[in-house]
């Protein structure tokens, strides 16, 4: 199910931990969904000097955290901000389709940590809360099969699509 790279990062995750005097902290996800990440960054000369994280979640969530920390270390803040979910997944040799959205939270957590740094250290006004993109659950939450937008029940398993 998972690529070798994902398994490598899961088995020996890099940069796990907490930075006590972090310049920025970013937290995403919640335990009810099954994935939660907290990223800590240290910034020097506009670059990410150090990065650590704690992650509660599945194999994908842990591997993504590890990969993001590895990629972001040494990046300028602008580079780190433009780090995309897609790029992270690609670097990991791909992620299962159903894990792309809910477990691939690393880049988001990092962006939040940078935002936190900019607000705290640079006095930047808080960015307006982004409208959460609410996708229609066309993928059945029970079996993962895609259904037409108008479907009330999953065509595959009969699960109700709320």
């Amino acid at each position: 199910m998972y690529s070798d790279k994902v398994m490598e990062h899961f088995s020996s995750p890099k940069n796990v931990g907490v930075i006590e005097d972090a310049d920025g902290i970013g937290e995403v996800g919640n335990p009810v969904c099954g994935d939660m990440m907290t990223f800590y960054i240290k910034v020097k000369d506009g670059k990410i000097e150090d990065i650590k994280y704690k992650t509660f979640g599945c194999v994908a969530a842990i591997a993504v955290s590890s990969k993001v920390s590895e990629m972001a270390k040494g990046m300028t803040l602008e580079e780190a901000k433009s780090l995309s979910k897609k790029a992270v997944a690609e670097e990991l040799g791909g992620l299962p389709k159903e894990k792309m959205h809910c477990s691939n939270l690393g880049a988001e957590a990092l962006a939040k940590a940078i935002q936190d740094y900019e607000e705290k250290k640079l006095g930047k006004p808080p960015a307006p809360e982004k409208e959460e993109l609410h996708e229609h659950p066309c993928c059945c939450t029970h079996c993962g099969v895609e259904n037409p937008e108008t479907a009330k029940f999953c065509m595959e398993c009969g699960e109700r699509l709320d």
Partner: peptide, 20 residues
Amino acid sequence: SSQGIYANTGSACASKALKT
């Protein structure tokens, strides 16, 4: 599994359905 122990879970993440 990496320790040679093969078990199961009812976790949402493992269900492919991503549902508790």
